[in-house]
């Protein structure tokens, strides 16, 4: 019964590019309806690990994964698992806002439509935009280009698009790194709203963001073979106040990285 609290679990998960191991032996249990942050210096494999969670790394030539990634006790890297199904359950928001070159409405409707959504599309669009705190800003221009929105609005549209397909988990790859501080704050507020319904895993470079917004924090670091790994995983408070690892302490206090 303990499992029920965990949205996703990794079991000795390693990610390799050809013969090079990029991320090694990750064991993490991500709690449901919490925000889990992954932090660490550049090049330590944070994004690689995050992309492994919804099998986006499948598109990288030569990339393969060993170990297990368990969602509801099912290994997402099992032979009988379709990556499309994985991405349907685990949505992703990317570093740079990447709305489709279509209307605001269509940005949300497309994902729903290709996944065979049978309900009322207008309602879904409105509800998704409301959940992403974007509805009031765009309700009068749903047929306009998504590219006409500001960067922060585009990123919230991307979040709305992800919510629309009702995933269990939302992965966010430095979602605010291309945004100004005000837009960043709005995204963080939004995350607090979203965690009522979704599990969120976020990669961030911004230490304050991790400290402010997340419930749990995973600290990643590369070893002497240049393979990244999670060196410490605990609640955010512990990581930022009483880290167990000297390297984590150095990193979160800004002494290096």
């Amino acid at each position: 019964m303990e499992n029920i609290n965990y949205a996703i679990e990794t079991n000795d998960l390693s990610i390799h590019y050809g013969s090079f191991t990029a991320v090694k032996g990750v064991n993490m249990k991500v709690e449901r309806q919490k925000i889990t942050a992954i932090i660490g210096p550049s090049g330590c494999g944070k994004s690689t690990l995050l992309r492994a969670f919804n099998r986006m790394n499948d598109f990288v030539p030569g990339c393969h994964v060993t170990g297990k990634l368990l969602l509801d006790n099912q290994n997402l890297y099992g032979k009988d698992v379709d990556p499309v199904e994985v991405r349907r359950k685990i949505g992703m928001v990317f570093q740079k806002p990447n709305p489709f070159p279509k209307s605001i409405y269509e940005n949300i409707a497309w994902g729903a439509r290709i996944n065979g959504f049978k309900g009322k599309m207008d309602e879904l669009v409105e509800q998704s935009l409301r959940s992403a705190a974007l509805w009031d800003e765009v309700k009068d221009k749903l047929q306009q280009s998504a590219y006409a929105l500001s960067g922060g609005q585009q990123q919230r549209l991307c979040i709305a698009r992800t919510i629309a397909i009702q995933p269990e988990i939302i992965l966010m790859d430095e979602p605010a790194s291309a945004l100004d501080p005000i837009s960043t704050l709005r995204i963080e507020e939004l995350m607090q709203e979203l965690k009522k319904n979704y599990t969120i895993i976020i990669v961030t470079h911004n230490m304050q963001q991790a400290a402010r917004a997340s419930d749990y924090t995973a600290m990643m670091m590369i070893d002497d073979q240049r393979a990244g790994g999670v060196i410490e995983f605990d609640d955010t408070k512990t990581i930022f106040t009483r880290p167990g690892d000297k390297r984590t302490e150095d990193y979160v206090t800004g002494r290096f990285g």
Partner: peptide, 27 residues
């Protein structure tokens, strides 16, 4: 066609064919 567009489509659960047909080819 930028890769970010393909990733966006895959990210919402599109198959490769849907990605190519609805996003890559039109662009």
């Amino acid at each position: 066609v930028p890769d970010s567009l393909r990733q966006a489509a895959f990210g919402v659960g599109a198959t490769r064919w849907q990605t190519v047909w609805y996003h890559v080819l039109p662009n």
